[in-house]
Nucleic acid binder design. Sequence first.
DNA 1: ATAATGATTGGGAGCGTTCCCAATCCTTTT
DNA 2: AAAAGGATTGGGAACGCTCCCAATCATTAT
Lengths: 338, 338
Amino acid sequence: MNNLTLEDIARKSGVSRSTVSRVINDHPNVSKAVREHVQEVIRQTGYRPHPAARALVSNRSWTCGLILPRAIPTFFTDPYYPCLIQGISQACSKKNYTFSLFLMENEEDEEQIFSRVSRRGFMDGILFQSYQIGDALLDKLVDSGIPLVILGRPFQNRQVSYVDINNIDSVSKAVQYLLDTGHKRIGTITGPQNTAVGIDRRMGYQQALQRNKIIVNEKLIVEGTFTEESGYWGMKQLLRENPDGVFTASDQMALGAMRAIKEEGLDVPGDISVIGYDDFPMASPAHPALTTLRQPIAQFCFEALKMLISLVEDGLEPYRRVILQSEFVIRDSTRDRS
Amino acid sequence: MNNLTLEDIARKSGVSRSTVSRVINDHPNVSKAVREHVQEVIRQTGYRPHPAARALVSNRSWTCGLILPRAIPTFFTDPYYPCLIQGISQACSKKNYTFSLFLMENEEDEEQIFSRVSRRGFMDGILFQSYQIGDALLDKLVDSGIPLVILGRPFQNRQVSYVDINNIDSVSKAVQYLLDTGHKRIGTITGPQNTAVGIDRRMGYQQALQRNKIIVNEKLIVEGTFTEESGYWGMKQLLRENPDGVFTASDQMALGAMRAIKEEGLDVPGDISVIGYDDFPMASPAHPALTTLRQPIAQFCFEALKMLISLVEDGLEPYRRVILQSEFVIRDSTRDRS
DNA sequence: ATAATGATTGGGAGCGTTCCCAATCCTTTT
DNA sequence: AAAAGGATTGGGAACGCTCCCAATCATTAT
């Protein structure tokens, strides 16, 4: 264990505490000779400053928290959360931040997380995955005044900074593509309608139809939960309406939908075209390879952390927002019927 | 933001800093009246102590790190890591610890993580997921003297504390079950043979056969990577040897194996029995429902954290170890052939 | 009533940093 | 050669807490 202090290094290198501190923090005004000598001593002793002492005096801990909402039914099966976690981890690593994870599973967790997190001094800021309408914790967090960035848009038009993906637009383009390639009866399996992504992706579907003067048929819309299973059952239901194309709000649901279609003896894309959303690792090795919308997760995470850091350094206001685009990736689960 | 200090609370409640500190830390020797009054003031003001200041003076940060190894090919598809993350998160929450996650993806990460983690004062201890043979970071961590618990057994017989699951024994029992129910040609799809779990589960398979005086046929052993895909291809290969039972080292591979079997026009369990390992969420809704070995992940994580805390509080030695058992869960993918 | 005892309470020191200001040193200019 | 200026260095104070010891208070026994 490393129990050296600044003072120890100062003594060993024959300079003062202040000088060593300056060397460590790359301050100017240290002569080259002294700087190099001190660096050498630090290297040899393996000294590393005490993070808590630093945090105490500088009020920066170089740690940020990621809060994932409670009751994630898909935490184990949907790659979204692992991808997000990896993305944030990478971003933190690049920015030299330590990354603390908070999984919120019940009411008590919520209280505990709040008290753990809302006190500046251990956590420089918080990334909060938007999920359900009316998250009490989110309100408290906003009020607490800790630097906060929402991943995904918040529900109420609150005064918060956030990073989002233009779901409406992206989906609308994908459905437009189905329209342009001669599809006549396009269904959708949506995400949960109490989540922002769920609502927005459905909205994108509707906008595309409306723009083309097509009346939205409620029977061609089924609500899912992002899981493979819900895609399967949703498709079973849609099949009764004889669609020739389906947009599903996640790749997992697209996989489920394809399973249902095949089970019915129909072919993808021969009889029905399927479009997913995410472009997660299982999308391209699927049979047929899935046409989908690629979420720019890595960039998303990076922008979120960048925003958080600017909040930490420059203050909370003005509120910032960044909207990213998903990329439409055409593979083999769609066919031109025109 | 909460910028109150102990001194502020002391002033507001007309007592001294020391008394407030005693109230917060539940020390005895505070009169009931004073204690309640101070608690009321704390409640009203929403005061929370500055964690960095506490950590500085007490040398406890109430934070632990989880390091996940580099190059996890299955991070997004295998539910093991999400489950582990959730388990550790729950355990930390119960023990009032904050949980920092480190994903190691390349050499630089390794160096960075080490320097972030090895300095006591911000991280009370480290949980390290055992993975590949010869992890350089692990060696450095052990040398650094920071409290450390390995998840899974370490390779070299090093002086470290760890928590493991008795893979050899568990698998051996499962294979014994196949033997007892009249299976004659039992194959296995192993995990990677440069991982401890991969090696141990294969060993369990071999031990069961040897105990029953059956010669181990190398052609009935195929190495996989824990993924669905590798289970599929592994099974394709095994099929040439006409097995009537297969043990796969993960549920994912079992799913892949079943896909391959069905594709060949054979039936599970009619023609071939399949046993997986993990009992992750997708095991029971599979068709047929998977017979498997249930990893006690939650308990595993809890024991690991408990061990880590005892290391933090009582010192590193003597080395501790806890071995848990997997539970054999019989469902519909196996059939009695006797 | 007084001494002795134990329960409360308060204040000082210190944890390892950073930051500020004053002191020193070296150049350069006159 | 002396003064001025900038570059470099050192030391004190502060961050907000815990811990220790001394002081005070209440309670009981003599």
